[in-house]
């Protein structure tokens, strides 16, 4: 069998999602963002949401998310995505509004907006990439950086005395009455990718069904910031990140709409 014979439409088992633009991303090879982008693009297409979705992009590595996924986007100021999404959603209740944020954006500078949007039960989905570091600005400490972890601003390792403790923001959000679904996933194996896709699908469904705020934390790698190879990063994540940020559902939704 020749290569030409194999490359036939009927043999195709995988393709670029229709809503993921045909262009190179600015993400580092091995970065988790690309996988999560792909999942979102697939879901928006599969769920028929292309024309009624507004994404809210953060400041951080995913600042250019709007350049890759073919739906309407609003680029928020650092940390303010949940406030931006609040208005976009309340003023356009027919739309799916989701935020896509990193740990610095969602859990440091934007903590107030995150907690209050979730506490109001805004009918939005928050996709939260937690890689324990500031990637875009060059590898500084994040609120979720583990104790002992070396970053550009904790060159000798994070200490509780100096920097406090890693912030498990999803656990906090799960305690709020406004959230309907809080889960922590990863994308380091095909099985994990499938589970994350199911989780984000559930989050989108919750937002559309007005069940309240959904949070999907994706524990991720930053091989550039962690200064490890992509494969080693995955190993390090499983060994260290999962201890502080164990995978699984923190809160699951009831079927009834909240408001």
């Amino acid at each position: 069998m020749t290569t030409e014979e194999i490359i036939q439409p009927q043999n195709k088992v995988y393709s670029r999602p229709r809503l993921l633009d045909e262009r190179d991303t600015h993400y580092c090879p091995g970065c988790s963002h690309g996988v999560v982008h792909k999942i979102i693009a697939e879901l928006l297409d599969e769920m028929g949401l292309e024309n009624k979705t507004v994404g809210v992009a953060p400041v951080g590595c995913a600042v250019f998310a709007y350049n890759y996924i073919d739906v309407d986007w609003v680029e928020a100021a650092h940390g303010r995505a949940p406030a931006v999404a609040t208005a976009a959603s309340r003023l356009n209740p027919q739309n799916l509004v989701f935020t896509y944020q990193g740990d610095g954006d969602l859990a440091a500078i934007g903590t107030a907006e995150t907690i209050h949007a979730a506490n109001r039960g805004e009918n939005i989905a928050m996709i939260f990439i937690n890689n324990g570091i500031y990637g875009m600005t060059g590898g500084q400490m994040a609120p979720t950086t583990l104790l002992g972890m070396k970053t550009a601003t904790t060159p000798y390792g994070r200490t509780a005395e100096l920097n406090g403790y890693p912030l498990p923001i999803s656990n906090i959000l799960a305690t709020l009455d406004g959230t309907c679904y809080v889960t922590r996933q990863a994308v380091h194996t095909p099985a994990a990718v499938r589970k994350t896709k199911a989780a984000i699908k559930k989050a989108f469904e919750n937002a559309l069904a007005k069940r309240g705020t959904s949070v999907v934390e994706v524990v991720s790698t930053c091989n550039s910031g962690w200064k490890l190879s992509p494969a080693k990063s995955n190993e390090w994540m499983v060994e260290h990140m999962f201890e502080k940020y164990p995978l699984g559902d923190l809160k699951t939704p009831s079927e009834e709409p909240k408001n």
């Binding site: 507004v54 809210v56 609003v74 928020a76 100021a77 303010r80 406030a83 931006v84 999404a85 609040t86 208005a87 976009a88 309340r90 003023l91 356009n92 907006e113």
Partner: peptide, 11 residues
């Protein structure tokens, strides 16, 4: 920032 988000949708 809510104003920004709302204005972005043309409201």
């Amino acid at each position: 920032n809510m104003v920004y988000g709302g204005a972005a949708t043309g409201k």
